[in-house]
Computed example of a mutant assay.
Amino acid sequence: MEWTVPQDAPAAATDFQREVYCLLGLPVDALTEQQAVRLIRGAAEQGRRCFFSTPNLNFLVGARSDAEFRNSVLRSDLSLADGMPLVWIARLLGAPVRERVAGSSLFEALGRQAGRPLGVYFFGGPPGAAQQAHARLQGAAGGLVPAGFQCPGFGSVEDMSAPATLQQIAASRADVLVVALGAKKGQAWIEHNLAALDVPVVSHLGAVVNFAAGTLQRAPTGWQKLGLEWLWRIKEEPSLWLRYLRDGRAFLRLMATRVLPAACLSRWHRASPRALRDAALAAELVDGVQVLRLRGAWTGANLAPLREGFDRIGRAGAADVRLDLAQVTHLDAASLGLLLLLRGHQSKRGRRLEIVGCTPRLRRLFHRAGAEFLLDGA
């Protein structure tokens, strides 16, 4: 194999050891709430960057038509299933995403976790909500303490990214930055400013500001477990009904045209033991492009060589990558999830990921998985 990896190359900026699964084109980490809390708190305490996304049904639907919104999830350090529809999809596809990890629950769990108190900065939300959340956290006992707040109003991402705004966040020395600007604008604001933000943990956690402020009440636990929190949210915020109606219709279409066909075919066409044993990759440098030629079947059971190969790419100098899948017979949700991470990694570096040699059967597989955009060579 030929790799362009300097001897003193730093560790890959993307963690290709993550156990992620492709759910309708978005990577989702197979983590429990407890595991996610432990990782996020560890990052905050160590001052290590962790930009985590919390995709729900609204994310899934929005990402279908908005490439930059989708890319913000692909470029995240963690992607957690904040929505029971994602858990249901995972179950149908055989992916071990066994529980919902809601951003609101995660925030509450961080407050209960033992360890030094983490400073929280609230950015966004309705007028007065961030200030009220800050004040309520001031008087609460637990693992979270207030570090500051801003309500930037309703301007553009650029308007909300003035140097004075970022300096105020930096001066707070917060450990966690909670952004609440609406999913698409919030993700865009984070991506626009991430390099300049001197805060280890950053996430768009929309309703958390309202819940922390006490202006909205979360659904009872039973409603959450049944996947009915959306109904409670409509009771609390009647204006949300139209969004939920649109997302619900889109979800039913995606279930009928993508998820159910993919689930059925995954049961009828399993990778043979021989194809799994034959899985291998060869690497070479061709005209400055890192080319990986894969063969055989790739599933969650045999991804170690692929993870190692992608790690090498991550440690190498920035280069375009070409994956040749002409001899690949099968990809599952885990292997597609790894391809999503590679796409995100290349995107962060401003480089291309080109996938070539797909058979018609593989193309149909990418389509059913909602990952057909991986074949566009962007």
Rank of each mutant, 00 (worst) to 15 (best):
A164R: 08
L254I: 00
R253F: 09
L252W: 10
P152N: 11
A102W: 02
L281M: 10
V157W: 04
R249A: 13
L281S: 03
P27L: 09
L110A: 03
N210Q: 15
G115V: 01
H367I: 03
R351I: 04
G357W: 00
P127R: 12
A369E: 10
S272K: 12
V157T: 09
S347L: 11
G186H: 04
M160E: 08
I234D: 02
Q168G: 13
D77Y: 10
A262M: 12
G377S: 04
N302S: 09
E108D: 14
Q7E: 14
R270P: 01
A129F: 02
L242K: 15
V5D: 01
R91K: 13
H192N: 06
G115Y: 03
G143C: 01
Q46M: 00
V5P: 03
A109I: 00
Q290P: 09
A109V: 00
R218G: 15
P238L: 08
S76G: 15
P220G: 10
A282W: 03
G300M: 05
L252R: 12
L31V: 07
D332H: 01
P55L: 12
A109R: 15
E191C: 04
L362Y: 02
W3A: 11
F51Q: 10
A102D: 01
W268A: 14
A275N: 06
S105H: 14
A256Y: 01
K184Q: 15
T14C: 11
A250S: 12
S347M: 01
S156A: 12
T165E: 07
R70F: 01
G47H: 09
P261N: 06
H134C: 14
L341E: 01
S161D: 03
N210A: 15
H192G: 02
R41H: 01
R38L: 11
D29Y: 08
G139Y: 02
L340Q: 01
F373Y: 15
A262L: 15
E45W: 06
R173P: 11
L303E: 04
P55V: 11
P10C: 06
L260N: 00
V291P: 03
V199G: 08
D77S: 12
P360H: 07
L226G: 10
S105M: 07
Q34W: 00
G25W: 05
F122S: 04
N56W: 09
L374W: 06
D320Y: 07
W241V: 12
E236G: 06
D15N: 15
A141R: 12
L325A: 03
N58F: 02
R173C: 14
D66Y: 04
L254W: 06
G125C: 00
